[in-house]
């Protein structure tokens, strides 16, 4: 019975995406104007409306986000520490490696 019930459920679910309409996400200018009129605010059309989800160029900056980070003192030190860490790990990968006779 559980199987039958779930089969019916899933069968009912399958056509839903086709039957259902997309959520309206792109507002039309009349809708905006209507809203603005409703709350009595001026300057309705001053701001352009974006039509879709999009990443823009705005990004909170931090000291580390500058393109010249690696030319700064912390950047140089970070690179040096990184280099030392990578170097020793690579050395270890070569020298501490156990090679099984089964792989020879």
């Amino acid at each position: 019975m559980i199987r039958a019930a779930t089969l019916v459920t899933i069968a009912a679910l399958i056509p839903l995406p086709a039957a259902a309409s997309d959520t309206a996400t792109t507002p039309s200018p009349p809708t905006i104007r209507k809203s603005m009129e409703k709350i009595g605010v001026r300057d309705v059309a001053a701001k352009p409306v974006r039509k879709d989800v999009a990443r823009d160029d705005r990004q909170g900056s931090s000291a580390g986000s500058s393109p010249g980070f690696f030319k700064t003192k912390p950047g140089i030190i970070a690179l040096a520490v990184m280099g030392a860490g990578v170097g020793y790990a690579l050395y270890s990968a070569q020298n501490d490696r156990i090679h099984s006779p089964g792989k020879k």
């Binding site: 959520t23 507002p27 974006r50 879709d52 990443r55 823009d56 705005r58 990004q59 909170g60």
Partner: peptide
């Protein structure tokens, strides 16, 4: 409020959408 610009800003930039009807 339809037509509101909503922006989500994170470590890899921002995304913007607008509210629907």
């Amino acid at each position: 409020l339809p037509g509101v610009n909503v922006t989500l800003t994170g470590p890899r930039g921002s995304q913007t959408t607008v509210t629907d009807a």
